[in-house]
């Protein structure tokens, strides 16, 4: 990737240093040892089963349907979920987990389009016209009922956004207590010099708005309904 450009940096930052009444700082700033770090206490000693319970409860709050299945039954359960939404066309990630979780024949169906398979960037339109978008979760946050998607390449960000419905496939091995565990991992990768994926989404249920008299309306610009399929992969 070619380097970008930056303009007016020095005058801008010199002014800040001056207003702060000191020399400009370009090195040597360490993050403080924060006195309180309550984020690490949240559900610190919970087992996976306990975290799953928390997640399921939270899904009620965020208007998200939940199904539970074994790896073996996943194709059947996924089919049910799609039928319940009355969906036909599906848009899915190009993700090896579809085959490792026994969904190869599902991915090969004619009414299922795999992200990146269309010629000349038609994917956005295809995804837009799909009834349901389906992705795996890379991480899952119990506290907030959130699936974390590390988008990029075959894992297009449109798939979880443009179709009318969204289904997240959640292997139980991806569950952590809260956002802190995931942001720490991203922080460690960034510190090691890795480029952070161009789009990371923390998705908690369907889109919604309370802009009209603070009445909650589920389904605005993103999916209008969402379903989490919890897969026991232990």
């Amino acid at each position: 990737m070619a380097q970008g450009t930056v303009q007016n940096k020095d005058s801008f930052l010199n002014n800040i240093a001056e207003k702060l009444g000191r020399e400009r700082r370009t090195t040597g700033v360490e993050r403080p040892d924060y006195q309180k770090q309550p984020q690490w206490e949240v559900m610190a000693d919970y087992s996976t089963d306990q975290l799953v319970e928390v997640l399921k409860k939270q899904c009620v709050e965020i208007h998200t349907d939940v199904k539970e299945t074994s790896v073996e039954d996943l194709p059947k359960v996924l089919d049910e979920a799609i039928k319940e939404y009355g969906a036909e066309k599906a848009s899915i990630w190009d993700d090896p987990r579809f085959s490792s979780f026994g969904l190869s024949s599902f991915a090969a169906r004619p009414d299922v389009s795999v992200w990146g398979d269309a010629p000349e960037e038609k994917d956005i339109r295809i995804s837009e016209q799909a009834d349901v978008g389906i992705t795996f979760a890379d991480y899952t946050l119990a506290e907030s009922g959130t699936v974390v998607l590390m988008n990029g390449g075959g894992k297009g960000q449109s798939v979880s956004l443009l179709p009318t419905y969204y289904i997240a496939l959640i292997p139980l091995s991806t569950i952590v207590p809260r956002m802190s565990q995931v942001t720490r991992k991203i922080h460690e990768d960034a510190e090691a010099g890795e480029r952070v994926p161009s789009c990371i989404n923390f998705i908690s249920g369907p889109s919604n708005s309370a802009d009209i008299e603070l009445n909650l309306v589920v389904g605005v610009h993103g999916p209008v309904r969402a379903c989490y399929i919890l897969i026991d992969d232990r």
């Binding site: 991203i186 789009c199 923390f202 908690s204 249920g205």
Partner: peptide, 12 residues
């Protein structure tokens, strides 16, 4: 809310 429906981190 614990988290809003979408927290999006963009590294464009």
């Amino acid at each position: 809310q614990k988290l809003t429906s979408y927290i999006t981190g963009l590294t464009g």
